[in-house]
Simulated scan of single mutants.
Amino acid sequence: MDEDTRRAIARRAKALTLIMPTEEEDAAITKAALSDPDNPPMTDTELAKLQPARRPRGRPALEATKVATSIRFDNVVLDSFKALGPGWQTRINEILLQYLIETRQLSRFHATVQAGAKEQRKADEFLVVARDTVQAKEKVKRHLLASGREEAARERVITVDVGNAAVRDLPVIM
């Protein structure tokens, strides 16, 4: 190892060496900090309220996450979507979803919200994309709560698997 390399390594090691104050120096520094009227120490309550300054990386988590996949498109199809600018993958997803809705090919449930225990009066109706009746009912309740309809969310929800059957003109809950 030549002399210049050895010196460079020694400089890096020295720069990385932590120099700790003695107990007396530490006490003097702490005393000076505590007596500073412009910068009082934080209380335990204030320290407990501290949160990270940055949010986690990436987009916020969504209730319905998307799945990465690989699919082959004709060049003209892919180039046309990309030419429309950012969001081309989202547009493809929306068009495919709309196709499934229009051709009645979604795995979905017809959900009816019953108003009143003895009354068999419908308060609302939805098409719900879900894996089973339990998830369909949960999604309806969350949708009602999110739209500010707490009273309706407390009502009974009846779900029927409609598979590919035609149920038109109902709002779709994903």
Score class of each variant (00 low, 15 high):
R156K: 13
R121H: 11
S80P: 02
A117E: 06
T69F: 04
D124I: 00
V76W: 12
E150D: 11
D36P: 05
R57H: 06
G58K: 03
Q105Y: 01
R131F: 01
K122W: 06
V128P: 00
E63G: 03
A165H: 15
D124C: 02
F109L: 00
T43H: 05
H110L: 05
A165Y: 11
T17S: 11
V160L: 14
A117I: 05
D132N: 10
A83V: 01
A53V: 08
V172C: 11
E24S: 13
I19D: 10
G87A: 05
E155F: 10
A83S: 13
I9R: 15
Q105T: 09
R121E: 10
V172D: 08
G116K: 03
A32T: 14
M20V: 15
T103Y: 02
L62T: 11
I29L: 13
D74A: 12
Q89F: 08
V76R: 12
R168D: 15
F81C: 03
M1Y: 14
E63M: 09
M20S: 13
R91M: 09
T30H: 12
D44M: 09
D4I: 13
Q135C: 01
L145H: 02
R142N: 08
A111N: 00
L145F: 00
P60H: 06
T5R: 15
R59F: 05
E94P: 01
Q51F: 06
T45V: 12
V128D: 00
N39C: 11
N164K: 14
D161G: 11
Q120S: 10
M42K: 15
R7W: 07
D36S: 04
R55A: 07
R12G: 07
L127C: 03
K14H: 12
R55M: 03
P37F: 07
D74P: 09
A83N: 10
D26Q: 15
V77P: 04
A130V: 00
L78P: 05
V67N: 05
I71W: 10
V113Y: 00
R55H: 04
